[in-house]
Design a protein around this nucleic acid. Structure first.
Lengths: 252, 252
DNA sequence: ACCTGAACACCGTTCAAGT
DNA sequence: ACCTGAACACCGTTCAAGT
């Protein structure tokens, strides 16, 4: 009667991240009878629906229909919708990590490549970015931070700064990605990104230059900027700062 | 019959940010009969409720009760819930900007003080951070970016880089704040932040050091870190990077 | 152990009707 | 012009009942 998935759930409106980790403990998905549900199957289907229809478009009823069951069945495998979306986001992050190059000449370019790979993956699944949580508790969140930390340790930065610097980089990657990507995803079919930027730039130009000296002069730059370049610009500033701080002890 | 607030609304699940800007155009709030609604009153009450009960706890029914009306009345002044939360977040940002020191010796420390003031304000209203949108369209979002850009222009950085660098800093402030602040806000009363960090650190320690060399060695640092320090560490790296890039042309 | 589907409690939003 | 409140459409979640 008591679904396994909420056995150690926390009270409150949100669920403890630790509860999220648990997976089906019985036989592997293929071990049951054909067509049996599993958390993996549910998360896969959720990612598909999220890609198609966004977070609001993901519904337990719709998801159940896609999986040929009733909504109640899903709750046996997944605590609730929050957890489902978090698991789905972690899956997207996992794909990004698999695609990110593992070898790098130096720590700096390794961090750069890793960050860009994550940005690109989140860019393809815009609903995911805000749900990649920190501090990480899910598998791929943990892997991401570990890879960052391992690279940071190679810079020659004093050991007592590794944690703070690594988490700062991790926050940059997921936080700035979310900022850049989410607003684009909320634009609907009738308003293209270009049209939106055009409108916004026009509004900036109409502002009073006495009040908004910068925006009025930079409105033109808004029209044809590339989101990815903005991410990379900030990233390079951050990594430059890393080198500056690390400089006293150059990489071995 | 047609509420003013949706007169130029966009179609789709989300609303065009431009529609958000409009405010009551009639007489000033105090000009109507006593107790009359206005967008300002509604947003103020929304901020209060959001602080108390979070985004999910904000309900048009509850908000209407607090304002002694029915839910339908609110829709005359505010397009929908998304817009309301965005307006509320902009109000919070406005308070932060008012509190941020305006004078600064050099651009770098001005940027630092501004960023920290915004972080602190968002930290006091954790629901707000993810709704401070970029590129900005609401009043205080515009003011924030303009202040950043004006400071960046003083660094001696070549003019063609002002836009990208300024938006990168702006993304850092709001994006990283959201990453740091939101997970704390979702912890409920039964799980304190300390308990959560303790649990998470314990989980990190149990990981296989061969797979997670960094996390297993840094788990202790997770237990007693300060969120604000992480924000500032990354911020300083970013601003150091700014100096590096700007160095060829030292501030006049 | 795992699935079913009806039912509960709720919420955003609309709209005819009022003032 | 602005407000009222009932009603619509929907959704997350639960749970007694099945296999």
């Amino acid at each position: 009667m008591v679904p396994r998935s909420i056995s150690n759930m926390e009270r409150g409106t949100r669920v403890c991240q630790n509860a999220v980790m648990q997976r089906t403990r019985g036989r592997a998905p293929t071990g049951g009878r054909a067509g049996a549900l599993s958390q993996e199957l549910i998360v896969d289907a959720a990612v598909e629906l999220l890609d198609e229809r966004g977070e609001r478009g993901l519904t337990f009823r719709l998801l159940a229909k896609h999986l040929h069951t009733g909504p109640g069945a899903l709750y046996w495998h997944v605590t609730n919708k929050d957890v489902l979306v978090t698991l789905a986001a972690d899956q997207v992050l996992g794909r990004a990590l698999a695609a990110a190059p593992r070898s790098a000449e130096d720590a700096g370019s390794g961090l750069r490549a890793l960050a860009i790979a994550v940005f690109d993956a989140l860019d393809r699944h815009p609903w995911a970015a805000p749900h990649v949580n920190a501090p990480p508790t899910l598998e791929n969140g943990l892997r991401l931070l570990d890879r960052i930390g391992t690279l940071v340790a190679r810079t020659g930065l004093p050991a007592e700064r590794h944690f703070t610097v690594s988490t700062a980089i991790s926050y940059y990657i997921t936080g700035v990605s979310a900022q850049i990507i989410v607003p684009c995803a909320t634009l609907d079919a009738t308003t293209s990104r270009d049209a939106f930027l055009d409108q916004t730039a026009a509004r900036w130009e109409e502002l009073d230059p006495a009040d908004y000296p910068f925006l009025t002069s930079t409105a033109k730059d808004l029209r044809d900027h590339a989101d990815r370049d903005q991410f990379i610009t900030g990233l390079d500033m951050l990594l430059d700062g890393l080198n500056t701080t690390a400089d006293p002890r150059p990489p071995a």
